[in-house]
Design a protein around this nucleic acid. Structure first.
Length: 138
RNA sequence: GCGGAGGGCCGGAUGGCCGCUGGGGCGUAGGCCCGAGAGGAAAGUCCGGACUCCACAAGGCAACGGUGCCGGGUAACACCCGGGCGGGGCAACCCGACGGAAAGCGCCACAGAAAACAGACCGCCCCGCAUGUGUGGGGUAAGGGUGAAACGGUGGGGUAAGAGCCCACCGCGCCGCUGGCAACAGCGGCGGCACGGCAAGCCCCACCGGGAGCAAUGCCAAAUAGGGUCCCCGCGCGGGCCGGUCGGCGUCAGCCGAUACCGCCGCUAAGCGCGUCUUGGCCGAGAGGGACCGGGUUGGCAGCUUGAGCCGUGCCGCAAUGCACGGCCUAGAGGAAUGGUCAUCGAAGGGGGCAACCCCGGAACAGGAUCCGGCUUACAGGCCCUCCGCGCAU
RNA sequence: GCUGCUGUAGCUCAGAGGUAGAGCACUCCCUUGGUAAGGGAGAGGUCGAGAGUUCAAUUCUCUCCAGCAGCA
């Protein structure tokens, strides 16, 4: 089931992802660093999925440029190893999905969950993020 | 071969594509190229330091805390090495908070006659009286029972019964000699049992320690309200004193005062509280503008990785370690990088098979956050070296 | 990252080297026509875990494990 699909992903992603980030979409993807940005996003819309919680906020026009995204894992997720693994997988999922499906001028915050974020197969992780974005943009 | 002891090491591999962090080079720039990127515990934060700030200044004492056989190592340590003593193991070897209880105080439940300094419940023995079992006096601590612990142990002599009362050995204590730097050990002599346990109870002795921590600390910038100092303008608002006016009380002398009194208004659940006259003089200097200072907030920079560093060789030393020479540069983030995915190979484990082998499965504990030295705790599995016991063969 | 504090009954807390306790809650009984209140009786504990000191540890010491605070 996965082997037939997997090579497609392996050949498609390298060809498509970099142009999407560099040429086709002029929006830049930056990472949230400030505590205030996270707090603002936490007050905005949110959508939970099996593997993650997604918060999204449309910024005021003069705040910043492009799509911004942040990652968070609380201590409930586990020790440092599992927290870091969850954040890395979320970061990779955001890199694959947000340049196409994110909207310019929005902030997104992805929050890891206990075991699911680290264990869910990667294609399903991507689908979770896409579904959550669709609901949040409505 | 089986079982065991000690020490050391590794702890998924290779490659493709796409990324991340910081470094170097090129380029006006978009960007391109090069090389680097988690651990043995990075963990717990239990000790010891470096470093920074604060306090105090030669320093000492007190208090508090820590360490605690001896010697050595070290920047230092509660760590390491060697030795001693005690305990465990047939052994290799392992474990030990291991100073002082004859400086003092305190505690030792229950049981037991008695729990710390002597004494005697049941007993044993002698004598007297009464007599078949008691009673009075005296001696004794061997035996019984209790307890975690009971006033040296075993054997012999001795005795009315007993007792270090006497003797031998053991234990204990003191003295001397010998070996050792020392802890301590050995030997000899003497004493004649006195000295119960607890110091992870207070304490005594010796030694050590000022406090806080990189979220320490230093620097830069921005905006905001308020504070301090100085300068300019300056007497409009407000403060103090005196006076006026007005008001309240009054025993008619006076007293009190815009924080009083009456009333009103506003905030409040209510109470408290605040505001609601005026002009003149003097003192004083506010607000406004400018400059500087200090504090807080946000962001940035430094601290930030060349160090009690790592590797190799040689030398002194039983060893820890030290010294010399040569070589190497090995993460530096800051809501915090070291990843995702694919392919090939793959240890443990599970299933099938007489077996070769086949199928499933897919790597333990866990990730830097100023840096070092230790300790402790977690850890699938594997490799190497040395040693011990038993069995077999020679 | 650093520094402290706390773990005892279902809950809130005492306790101190030899017995584990109080209040509320729970169960049963009395009282009431019934409930509440009141009275009586009862049950409920690896004292966070593991080592050590001691004759004896919930208490003293050490090591772990949780939880909660503070520090820019």
């Amino acid at each position: 089931m996965t082997p037939p699909e997997a090579p497609e992903d392996g050949t498609n992603q390298p060809g498509e992802t970099p142009p999407a980030a560099s040429v086709c979409a002029p929006v830049s993807l930056t990472v949230l660093q400030k505590r205030a940005d996270f707090l603002k996003a936490a007050r905005a819309r949110r959508q939970g999925t099996a593997s993650m919680m997604v918060q999204a906020r449309r910024r005021a026009p003069d705040e910043a440029e492009g799509i911004r995204v942040g990652f968070t894992c609380s201590k409930k997720v586990g020790n440092a190893v599992s927290r870091n693994r969850a954040k890395r997988r979320l970061r990779e999922a955001a890199r694959a999905v947000l340049p196409q499906q994110g909207r310019d001028g929005w902030d997104y915050v992805l929050i890891g969950r206990k075991a699911e974020t680290a264990e869910r197969p990667f294609p399903l992780l991507l689908k979770d993020l896409e579904g959550a974005l669709r609901k949040l943009h409505r």
